[in-house]
Nucleic acid binder design. Sequence first.
RNA 1: UCCGGUGUAGCUCAAUGGUAGAGCGGGUGGCUGUUAACCACUAGGUUGGGGGUUCGAGUCCCUCCACCGGAGCCA
Length: 434
Amino acid sequence: MQDLFYIKDVSRCVGKEVELRGWVYHRRRKGAVSFLVIRDGTGSGYIQCVFVRGELSDEQFEITDRVPLESSVLVRGVVREDRRAPGGYEILGSQIELIQEACDYPITPKEHGVSFLLDRRHLWIRSKRQRAILTVRNELLKAIRDFYDQHDFVLVDTPILTATFAESEVELFETEYFDLGKVFLTQTGQLYLEAAIFAFNKVYNLGPTFRAEKSKTRRHLTEFWMNEAEMAFYDNEMNMDLQEEFVEYIVQRTLERCRGELELLGREIAPVENVRRPFYRIEYSRAIEILREKNFDIEWGDELGGDEETAISMSFDKPVFIMNYPRGIKAFYMKLNPEDPRTVLNADLLAPEGYGEIIGGSQREDDYDCLIERISEFGLPVQPYRWYLDLRRYGSVPHSGYGIGIERTVAWICGIKHVREAIPFPRTIRRIRP
RNA sequence: UCCGGUGUAGCUCAAUGGUAGAGCGGGUGGCUGUUAACCACUAGGUUGGGGGUUCGAGUCCCUCCACCGGAGCCA
């Protein structure tokens, strides 16, 4: 097969005749010279093609002057360096073929509202900013997989259709499952990862999860991606140590590979560079004190809402763990704190700059009887958890794990305020298309 | 579900209760180095739907709808 030319390789092709295949991003004409900026989706992805009347047929020159934006074209020409060209390289075009003429592309180089753009998300992802964000997402996911590979974790894919549910109050999407009644789209693969540590010791998953909550905030999607990890013989401290190493790695690796994208997005780089161990660790009780000092009307035992999380995360210049929440507001599977049984051995990690919770983690209850008690404390039926309880009967060990929200992490790294731009095709309460 | 906000040209937005406009985009023409090019001309509207007040409603009132933001809940 013949090698295709890609814009990302342009610096290696100076002086060569190339065949560029891509889409018209921008068009200008100055008299007998017309300029087409073509993108092909590779690298930074844009190159200026220059066409001079007389150097190609009138018919072809006409195409360069008329071709609508986002039409697909093939351009033949010689690559050269030129200071006047954006990016420093351009193609002096000798031939152009219109592959398909785009008709009335709806997204123009001017401003559009978010609603308009989300209705055209299938086209919007071609834009510079959206490509930058999705590139960061891609590099972040690669960094996540590499981290686990380097730390002897095994990828265990957890099911999306499930019959059990881990946290009672969360609303789930339901569907009828043949003769077996109602099943749910998963909200977490954690219980399955807990089973898998007995086979592989350290495991992780990476995939979509679903919440039917009617949330309408910048932090929520109904379908979002989560990475969860579960480690045998880890206590809550070791769990936090690992999360620090993990977050530092994925953030710094992504920064290293996506500095250009972050600059394009206008992201301030210093706070991202500052994401280095150690992070801060405070008790839930201390968090309540801090909030009361800031005049929040909050009592020990209350949930931390969005505003509270923002206030705490703004108080620290690095991510901060909030440890040992009251047992009543966290999930049944979390191990009670032996030093203060009013609380559990957990930690939520809040990203700085007001981004709020990106990780929730805990040590799990590993004692059979305690777990049964906790299930009933939450008013949950024991039957669906029979297999999960088995794990406490056949070689139970102390273990811990966590889950990180991919879109929230992407939004934080990119410095964008809404998670819906951090996923290619967002699903929200009001949006299922495109 | 609750609270707040917004619906005017393809898009982004103006318009004291008194003739519905601009910029961009589209179309036509001009320009031999443009950088969101520029210049000239041009087409484009049941002001979200319905009802009401008024001599007169984009503007005020009622109602419905759609969307946005936030709360609750959560990653």
